[in-house]
């Protein structure tokens, strides 16, 4: 029997640090000896930049635009430590359907049995923030990713996006869709940030798998076109990313989250708003 490929999707609000986290996890996993592919599912198509010295690569949809049939070999590029990098890409802003683009790109890879041919251990889908339409939910449907991790800070908008993602997961959970692996808390430096995320996790019956501080090492590495794992392997930050990678490699059991409904989320947020005001006034 062929070995089981671990497929993971990373979701979260735009700009929250999905690609940074995903790339560092990919880099860490590959240094641990796994064969990894990172599949950028964001029309921005910059998911794998820090795995490739800041290079943009031709996307699946770029190639689709130029040719009648797409040979997947033309859209797979090797990055740091042999990591396979793919960007789904998107239509020109304001035209076409980016969501359908994600579906088309992912289906293309499935049809051509790429993951099996490359003998991959792990595929990481780095997907755009909100699950705005069916297309962006594609990676969490039956037979694609198995585990979903959401990157979130303590900002309300990031938590709102995470909560929406939980709703998407619930929707597909009965039909063999992906389940939640956990929350990766990013940019948590203030003690109350941790408290907020923990509280949200408690309310949604989910778990935070780790906390990533905001760190200038990340910025410095990014400016060199590298992940922290590559540029500063001995830093504190790299240690954290490695720790997360190990947890993900070992991760087996995901679960169905319990998202808050609109009212619950507002009530929850306003309770925190009051608390933060008190903190400020102290």
């Amino acid at each position: 029997m062929a070995k089981k490929i671990k497929q993971i999707a990373i979701y979260g609000k735009g700009g929250i640090g999905k690609s940074t986290t995903a790339s560092n996890i990919s880099a860490a996993l590959s240094t641990l000896g796994y064969k990894v592919m990172q599949f950028g599912c964001d029309p921005k198509s910059d998911s794998t930049n820090t795995l490739r010295r800041g290079d943009y690569i031709p996307t699946v949809l770029d190639t689709m635009r130029e040719k009648q049939t797409v040979d997947v070999e033309e859209v797979i590029f090797k990055g740091f430590n042999g990591i396979y990098c793919v960007e789904a890409g998107g239509p020109a802003p304001g035209v076409g359907c980016a969501g359908r683009g994600i579906i088309s790109a992912v289906e293309l890879f499935r049809q051509q049995h790429v993951f099996e041919t490359l003998d991959l251990d792990i595929v990481i889908y780095d997907v755009l923030g909100d699950v705005v339409c069916g297309g962006f939910a594609m990676p969490i449907r039956e037979g694609i990713a198995e585990h979903v991790f959401t990157v979130s800070s303590a900002d309300f908008m990031a938590i709102y996006a995470a909560n929406n993602l939980f709703k998407g997961i619930c929707k597909y959970s009965n039909s063999g869709g992906a389940l939640l692996g956990g929350i990766i808390a990013n940019s948590v430096n203030k003690p109350y940030s941790k408290e907020i995320i923990d509280d949200f996790a408690e309310h949604t019956k989910t778990r935070v798998i780790d906390y990533v501080p905001r760190s200038v090492t990340v910025t410095q590495s990014e400016l060199q076109g590298k992940t922290t794992i590559e540029a500063a392997p001995d830093s504190e930050q790299a240690k954290i990313y490695r720790r997360i990678a190990e947890k993900i490699a070992a991760h087996e059991n995901s679960y169905v989250p319990q998202p808050l409904d609109g009212n619950e989320l507002r009530t929850w947020a306003s309770k925190w708003a009051e608390k933060l005001l008190e903190l400020q006034n102290d």
Partner: peptide, 10 residues
Amino acid sequence: LERDVVLGGV
């Protein structure tokens, strides 16, 4: 067809 949906059919 699919490519027109994804990339726009204009």
